[in-house]
Design a binder for these strands. Structure first.
Lengths: 239, 239
DNA sequence: GCATCAAGAATCGTATACACTTTCCGATAC
DNA sequence: GTATCGGAAAGTGTATACGATTCTTGATGC
């Protein structure tokens, strides 16, 4: 429906087919994160099932998983829609990140191995490359993965899971509320974080992460209506 | 299987039937929280479906939801088992609670209305009553609900959701690792928290919550093998 | 007597079928 | 011309059926 899940860019031709609910969920999450599926888009079970070559049973399981992560909203007897976070929800997500991520960055600084640091550096390089190539969707996703990687380094699975979920939602939030005028992306903040981690400086890593999150939140415009096409359509169709 | 989901105590006879996956999930979660379903117990789809009078389709959805909350563990082609949190997982859950709950208690202190305080007081009364009645399962569940209620008062849905999930897991953890010798339950800590909230004292609420969580964690025995029947059974049956 | 292996039963994974709800669209009344 | 009502179409909710995997159990060989 309107979005091209079938295009070569959306589905890797090498991968034969996910065929599993987890695979479908991952694929759909990727499409949402990279903004190929716009907030408010309705996902039909039949249609998605046909695209992935599986029955509605598998699709429904994938939808349920994504709904639990707040990437989709399920409306009984009406279907699944890509979530449209409200301004309030956006503030709450960043509030939660502010509670979790700074302390996690400190732990990461204390535990990071050379391999970890190399992985982070690679993330930053990829992010810059995507930006230069003009692929902002991919750049934003990689930017989020940088945060997830830090949480992983901290070696706290439970907190890492929460942070992963929050960053996943942040991706949607940014696509709705990002102010284009601040074109200078936050890459420098990630560079500084990496340096703090490499220096094993927990204090600085915590402080940097804290201010980075504040910067991120302040770069959003949470006062006006959400950006993009959905605002009009959603208003008219009252979903 | 072994546990009595069919007993009057397990299923309210007044309620005709949940019939929905959410209802089944709630009912099963309650049974796990009150330790009527022991960690490691296998839940058969057919059996649970027959008990609740619905098909496996509904049951599977409920299982998936509970697995996402770490109350169940799904093993492909083998079935659903009540989770058995490891000592490491227990530490992680309390680590996450330590990051989230103190600051949330502060917010709650700043926002609590008289109605909120009354609800908290009621929770404490119910908890004491359950303890006096010897129903420790119910008492522990109410003790957890006290924390959830504080998160709800803080009016942060996202964080509240995380805390709810963490407390849900804590219930399982406590059932596995609780040391019986500390019989004096934590009721006094809740009383003190309530007083801090009533006094609008955010600083004290935050401090009290922090120390309360430390006390809780230290009352667990995370060194030996998990308590209760599962330890032996699990060792023999190597799940 | 013990281990190994195979056939059967039990259970899960997926697809399909049917019932019910929602939505859409056209006809009718005002 | 507008609003309201009714029926058809589309889509979701649930149950059932069938294939695949795992577990059990009894027989066989060493």
């Amino acid at each position: 429906m309107s979005q091209d899940l079938t295009s070569p860019a959306a589905r890797d031709p090498d991968a034969p087919a996910p065929a599993t609910s987890e695979g479908v969920a991952t694929e759909l999450a990727l499409a949402i994160h990279e903004h190929r599926l716009a907030p408010g888009t309705k996902l039909s079970e039949d249609e998605v099932g046909e695209i992935f070559g599986v029955s509605r049973t598998v699709i429904r399981a994938a939808f349920q998983r994504l709904a639990h992560d707040h990437l989709l909203v399920l409306k009984r007897n009406r279907g699944a829609f890509v979530a449209q976070p409200t301004a309030r929800e956006a503030r709450e997500v960043f509030e939660a990140r502010a509670l979790l991520e700074p302390r996690t960055a400190r732990s990461a600084a204390e535990r990071a191995t050379p391999a970890d640091l190399a992985a982070l550096e690679r993330h930053i390089r990829d992010e810059h490359a995507a930006l230069d190539a003009g692929d902002t969707g991919r750049a934003l996703r990689l930017s989020g993965l940088f945060h997830v990687e830090i949480a992983r380094i901290a070696d706290q699975d439970t907190i890492c899971e929460f942070i992963t979920s929050l960053i996943s939602r942040s991706s949607l939030i940014i696509s709705l509320y990002w102010q284009r005028r601040t074109a200078i992306c936050e890459s420098h903040a990630h560079d500084a974080l990496l340096r703090a981690l490499a220096a094993r400086d927990g204090d600085q890593a915590e402080a940097l992460m804290k201010s980075h999150l504040i910067d991120l939140l302040s770069s959003l415009d949470l006062h006006g209506a959400p950006e993009g096409s959905p605002s009009l359509r959603a208003a008219l169709r009252r979903d």
